[in-house]
Amino acid sequence: MIKQPVHIDESDVVIRLRSLEKSFGNLHVLRGIDLDVHKGENVVVLGRSGTGKSVLIKIISGLLKADAGEVWVLGEDMNAINPKSLRALRLKIGFSFQNSALYDSMTIKENLEFPLVRNKKHLTRKEINLAVEKVLDDVGLLQTLRQMPAELSGGQRKRVGIARTLILQPEIMLYDEPTAGLDPITSTDINNLINEVQQQYGTSSIIITHDLTCAKTTGDRIAMMVEGRFIQQGSFETIFESNDPTVTSFYQYNFINGDETNQK
């Protein structure tokens, strides 16, 4: 089912990218990206693997530096931000990694309380425990509290990864391939969770994916990326109706790979 777009105040931009460029050696990954993400909006960056989608959100989170162009996140210029302000800004950004990136040596509880213990030192042990239980309950995995990450399934790990970012109540969520490697039912659960997070926590999100179902069910707006550029932006229907051969070949690729719900 196509997601019903939420009401967006277009004057309230939380992420602004202008003429963004990034290269690794001879490999020109991002070639002039322009994007605005508004408060409360889910923007899906759709494209094939290796087109620079993950690099884009790593630049937004400050893990990578752009070679050229402007990056503004919650009013902060990421090209000129000092370490102290970057640290404060990161408390407002949640990053859900493709492979969840849970700390292997810690239990689920320790994974979840890690950002709190590190950054909210005024909290009591009881407050930390309550916050951990609440956020784990929000993703439906309260029973995994004492387990180790290795004991969880791929879908459960994704959920815990999302819960770990939610514990700091971020304003922005960055999802890197949230449904990659998951079966269709678990993928649907994750897509629903992304929408629940948007509603419950009021987050603005960028969702990186090559999964059309994920794009269709979570995106208020889709940005189609090909070879480091956005070739189209708009609602899912707008992109879906496009006659651009690159866009149609992407649909065909998804169809051939079994996503029959996305047949044109």
Partner: peptide
């Protein structure tokens, strides 16, 4: 091995984005 594994599975990046 431990830090190498944390690096390639993005656990170090996860730590960095959680302001640590």
């Amino acid at each position: 091995a431990e830090l190498g594994s944390m690096r390639v599975t993005e656990q170090i990046d996860a730590m960095e984005v959680s302001a640590t």
